[in-house]
Amino acid sequence: MNIVVEAKQIKKVYGAKGNIFSALEDIDLTVMEGEFVGIMGPSGAGKSTLLNILATIDDPTTGNIVVDGINLTKMNEEQLSAFRRDKLGFLFQDYNLLDTLTVKENIILPLALAKLNIKELERRADEVADKFGIRDILNKYPYQISGGQKQRTAASRAIISKPSLILADEPTGALDSKSATDLLESLKDLNEQDKATILMVTHDAYAASYCNRVLFIKDGKIFTELVKGKRSRKEFFNKVLDVLSALGGGANDVI
C-alpha cells in the first residue's frame, strides 16, 4: 500500500524573539492510502495548525512534508495552488461554499479551474451528486439550503477531482446530529468503497469513532494513538472517550 502523507519533524513557531509560542513540536505523521485518520485534542492543541500545514495553506517553520510523493516544502506559490486544486479535497466546519454560485457550480468549481472538458465535468458532477443525495438541489443557491445539505455539497466538491487526500476540519461542528451522522456515514462509505484517504480533525468523539485510527495531540505534541482494528464503532467510541478524559481539557467537548 502507498504512503499518501509523510510528515517528518514538523515544527511551527509563532511570534518573534522573546515571545515565542510553538504550536507544533516535532510532529511525525504517516498516512497510508485508504486510511481514515482522525486527529483529536483539546482546543489550542495544534490540530488545526497541523491540518493547515498539510493543506499547504500554512507552512511549517521547519520539517519536511511529502504528499503523494511530492515534497511540499520545495514548491512555490503557484505550484502549491495547482497542487491543492489537483491533489487535495477540503471539508470545513463552515462549509466554505461560495454563495454566488449554485450548488452544482460550487461542486464543479475545482474541475472548472482545472479546465477539464465539459462532458467529463458533467458526468462527474452527476456521479458525486448521486453519491451524496443532492441531485434535487443542484440548481439552488447556498442561502436556500440547510446546513446538512451545505456540508454534503462541500463534501461533493472535496471529492469531485478525485484527490489523493481529503482534509476535513471539524466537518460536523455546525451540524445537527442527524446530518452529522449522515455525513459521517457518507465519508465512511467513501473510505471503504472508493478507498479514499481521509484526514479529519475533530473534537467530537462520536465523529472520531468513524475513523480507522485516531491521533491525539496535546500542546503541540502527539500524545497517543488509537487504532480501531477489529473493534466495533461503539467500543472504539468508548476507547476514544477514555483517552480524552486522560488527556483532560477535552472532556467538555464530548457529546
Binding site: 495553506i57 506559490e77 495552488s81 495547482a82 470545513f92 479551474l113
Partner: peptide, 15 residues
C-alpha cells in the same frame, strides 16, 4: 471570505 475559499480550493494568487 470568498477569496480565502478560492485560495483554499487551489486558485493561485496570480489567478
Amino acid at each position: 471570505g470568498h477569496y480565502e475559499i478560492l485560495r483554499k480550493i487551489g486558485v493561485s494568487r496570480k489567478d
